[in-house]
Design a protein around this nucleic acid. Structure first.
Lengths: 202, 202
DNA sequence: TCCAACATGTAAGGAGTTACATGATTTC
DNA sequence: GAAATCATGTAACTCCTTACATGTTGGA
């Protein structure tokens, strides 16, 4: 079957920034890479255990009185090597894109332009929110000392991925606007023209 | 759990264009929507059976002498209604983006700029190939009579999704070029400067 | 002669999400 | 007093791909 298990490397990568718990890793992912990557606890915890089994990470338990013990994982030399090897390998591309909006639009004949326009407006709003988020992360990255998230070494790489997100999101926004115009025309060519004619009679 | 099963609607949508076999559906998907959607036989055939069970499609067997019988599926009124309902519902967004290139780039500290540049060049080539494909599909859509793929009714919707692909792919290309420059600088700031100094001595 | 295309399907299994289980602390 | 956060983990389940099984025809 030979599937990827990219999650393993995503987690190793997060550990390469320093020791972290499963909870920390999840937070970090949500903060920094969520516009192009996500992981759930259901993936993270089992894989952390596996990393220890394979000697790619070590586990230290920090007892806490009131809360569950913190299980902190640290990448090993072997883990670092395995991460480096993965980084060197060509990308298993075919970026799994499944865009439900485009699918609905493609089948647009079976519904009305108005409905499609609503979907696109909703999509556009979500994109705009993502752009705001990207902008705020960027500000954090550029402001030295403002965060322990992004030191000088990491900043350039964080910024490159952020720029990619901004580029693509801006592209979506442009397309949305353009497509909304086109749908409006389709709509005018359709039932609206009839409605206008009816209106004239009244 | 309440998952989506969008595949069901993707197949219903394909059947809305006319009766088709599982094989036909797969071909059609690869031709028309592959830049934002994909399905495998392992999904298509079981779902076609389910559509019949649920009264959303009917199955006709066309006997063929030398090949396996063609099982042709036709959407029912009930199927059309269910497709329309789905088209009306707001998009379950969160477009699952998992971009391995960006993940590797984010962890870039653990490897060299040269390796990252290679990955980006590879990615850029794939994007360029996709752009060519989109252009050819677009030509087919705009050339009346050239294909039974895209009639006048369908053309506007096909074109909108194609434009989205072109927009996004062009955005990727721009970003790739920009990022390649940035990585080159990082690279010069790093080991290359040392190499130049060594070269001076020789 | 071998490969691609035609054609349908099933089985196995990896990938990934969500819900559940548990429970204290802090903040509004 | 309720909700969010801290914190770890498992079980169940869906989704989806890949490999397998089977066999013909036509072209390079």
């Amino acid at each position: 079957m030979a599937r990827k298990n990219t999650t393993k490397y995503a987690i190793l990568g997060m550990l390469s920034f320093g020791p972290r718990s499963g909870y920390d890793i999840k937070q970090k992912i949500e903060q920094s890479v969520r516009h192009f990557w996500s992981e759930s606890y259901g993936q993270i915890y089992p894989i952390l255990r596996r990393l220890v089994d394979e000697g790619l990470a070590t586990k230290t338990t920090e007892p806490q009185e009131t809360r569950p013990d913190r299980h902190v994982y640290e990448i090993t030399k072997k883990g670092e090597r395995e991460l480096e090897v993965w980084l060197t390998e060509p990308i298993e591309s075919r970026p799994i894109v499944r865009n439900e909006l485009l699918l609905k639009l493609f089948f647009g004949q079976n519904t009305s332009p108005e409905i499609l326009m609503q979907h696109i407006r909703q999509f556009r709003e979500e994109i705009a929110a993502t752009l705001l988020h990207l902008e705020s992360v960027k500000a954090m990255c550029l402001d030295p000392g403002a965060s322990d998230e992004c030191d000088d070494e990491q900043a350039p790489y964080s910024l490159m991925t952020l720029h990619c997100g901004q580029h693509i999101m801006n592209g979506y926004v442009d397309w949305c606007d353009q497509t909304l115009d086109q749908l409006k025309e389709l709509w005018l060519d359709g039932d609206q023209r009839a409605a206008v004619a009816e209106g004239d009679e009244a």
